[in-house]
């Protein structure tokens, strides 16, 4: 069978670009996702604790932060950090700017997930913990959080997978992650359709692996949660 010239050319471009794009994924997309997710979780956790602490200034700060970062587009936040801040003398490299932007954004969203999980733990669990003489902090650490963790694994997993895809926005602030790489090749070869399908396919690859990891994690945590 003889392939026509154009098909041969496309196959050539796709196979030549596959590993460079995958490499951009492994060098930028994956680290960006993992670092941001870890930092975002820490920020989310602190924010959730602040929200339910009942200490007025902390509650106000947490609410304000969530309000701002949930209420504005991620793309705009990235542009403010990368293109906006230099005009007041704060210059961030692309990668740190992306990490900061995604962390702040993910922290705001995930804090609501964690807060909801903590609040969903039945009141009886607090009371049982108090009845055996625990302090609030002990009850939170030993009884409430372990249960809230289990509740929040599925929604946090979802937000993790959506983060993988969101990192493509980093291309707009010149991070050479997968999408950026794909754009470069597409521009050089004039084959945007096939190139972007290839990029989409690699994203799909990453999120499929992550979905699988998520379901493994869920199975591990699948002990009963109080009714």
């Amino acid at each position: 069978m003889v392939l026509d010239e154009r098909t041969e050319r496309i196959i050539g471009i796709l196979s030549d670009s596959f590993f460079p794009i995958l490499k951009a994924g492994l060098y930028f997309t994956v680290p960006l996702t993992l670092i941001t997710f870890a930092l975002g979780l820490i920020l989310a956790f602190l924010t959730a604790i602040a929200r339910i602490s009942g200490i007025k200034p902390l509650v106000a700060i947490a609410k304000f932060y969530v309000w701002i970062f949930r209420g504005t587009p991620l793309l705009v936040q990235l542009f403010i950090l990368f293109y906006g801040l230099p005009s007041v003398g704060i210059i961030l490299d692309p990668f740190p700017a992306a990490v900061l932007g995604f962390t702040l954004n993910k922290g705001a969203y995930s804090s609501e997930i964690i807060r909801a999980a903590i609040l969903s733990t039945p009141k009886g669990q607090w009371e049982a913990a108090f009845s055996i003489g625990m302090t609030r902090a002990q009850a939170m650490r030993r009884i409430i959080l372990p249960q809230a963790m289990r509740v929040s694994v599925p929604p946090l997993g979802n937000s993790f997978i959506s983060l993988v895809k969101d990192t493509s926005l980093a291309a707009t602030i010149t991070v050479t992650e997968m999408f950026q790489k794909g754009q470069q090749v597409a521009a050089a070869t004039y084959e945007p359709l096939w190139l972007y399908i290839e990029v989409a396919f690699i994203y799909l690859l990453f999120s499929t692996v992550l979905s699988y990891a998520q379901s493994m994690l869920e199975r591990r945590f699948d002990r009963s949660v109080a009714k």
Binding site: P122, G124, Q125, E127, A128, A129, S131, I132, I143, P146, Q147, R150, R223, S224, V225, A226
Partner: peptide, 13 residues
């Protein structure tokens, strides 16, 4: 004091 609850409130985890 120790307390026994109507709905047991055991720690499920």
């Amino acid at each position: 004091t120790g307390m026994v609850f109507q709905s047991y409130n055991l720690f499920p985890h």
